[in-house]
Computed example of a mutant assay.
Amino acid sequence: MKNEEGYVRVQRTFKEIGEDWVEFFAPVHEGDKFALSFGTPEMLLQSTQKEINKMKEKIKYPELTFNFSCIARQYVLEDKKEEENILISQNFDSPLFGFATYGEIGPDKDFRKVKLYNETATIVSLKEKEVCGKT
C-alpha cells in the first residue's frame, strides 16, 4: 500500500505460495490506495547490476561488501538467488557477507520517520579512506 509519500507502509504477508500463484494479505482500509506490481528474476538482476554500476562510480575497489536481501526478494529470484551474490562479488572483487532479512527499514524521504521497504537488496561497500597517501 502507498501513503501520501508513495512509500510502502505495511508489510504484505504471504498466506500461501502455489505452483503458479501467490496469495497474500495486508490491512486495506476504505479509501486506501494500493498498487500491485511484479518482477521477474531477470528484472531484479538487471536492477541489481544497474545499482552496482552506480556504486562503482563512487567506490571502485571496496575492501568489504555486505548484501542485505529481503526474503520476499529471494522468492522472486527463485533458482537465481545465488546469481545476485555472484554479480556483486564479480563486480566489486571484495569479500562479500550476505544477510537475509524480512524487509529493510529506513527513513522516509524527509528523514522524519521510519518506513518498511520490501523486496529489496541493500548493498554496502566499505573502503578505508586514504589520507595524504597513507591509509
Rank of each mutant, 00 (worst) to 15 (best):
M1C: 07
M1R: 10
M1T: 10
K2S: 11
K2Y: 07
N3E: 13
N3P: 02
Y7L: 15
V8H: 12
V10A: 05
F14A: 09
F14E: 04
F14C: 12
K15W: 06
K15L: 07
K15A: 06
E16R: 11
E16P: 10
I17T: 13
I17Q: 00
G18R: 05
D20Y: 13
D20E: 12
F24C: 02
F24M: 06
F25H: 12
H29F: 12
H29M: 11
H29Q: 00
E30W: 05
G31L: 07
D32P: 00
K33F: 04
F34L: 12
L36N: 04
L36T: 03
S37Q: 07
G39K: 13
P41S: 02
E42H: 10
E42L: 13
M43R: 14
Q46Y: 14
Q46A: 15
T48C: 15
Q49K: 14
K50A: 11
K50C: 07
K50Y: 14
E51P: 03
E51K: 13
K54Y: 13
K56I: 15
E57Y: 07
K58N: 15
K58D: 12
Y61V: 12
P62R: 00
P62K: 04
E63Y: 02
T65L: 07
N67Q: 03
N67K: 08
N67H: 02
F68N: 07
F68L: 00
F68D: 02
F68Q: 03
C70W: 07
C70Q: 03
Q74G: 01
Y75N: 03
Y75S: 06
L77R: 03
E78M: 09
D79M: 01
D79R: 11
E83G: 06
N85G: 10
I86V: 15
L87K: 12
L87Q: 14
Q90E: 15
N91P: 10
F92R: 08
S94T: 06
S94A: 15
P95R: 10
L96H: 09
F97V: 08
G98W: 01
A100L: 15
A100N: 13
A100S: 14
T101A: 13
Y102M: 14
Y102L: 15
Y102H: 15
G103S: 08
G103L: 11
E104I: 10
E104M: 09
I105F: 08
I105N: 02
G106H: 08
P107S: 12
P107I: 01
D108E: 11
K109A: 05
K109W: 03
K109I: 08
D110S: 05
F111V: 00
F111Y: 07
K113P: 11
V114F: 00
K115E: 00
L116D: 03
L116T: 05
N118Y: 06
E119W: 01
E119H: 10
T122V: 07
V124Y: 01
V124I: 06
V124F: 03
L126V: 05
K127Y: 06
K127T: 08
E128V: 02
E128T: 05
E130D: 07
C132H: 10
C132S: 08
T135P: 04
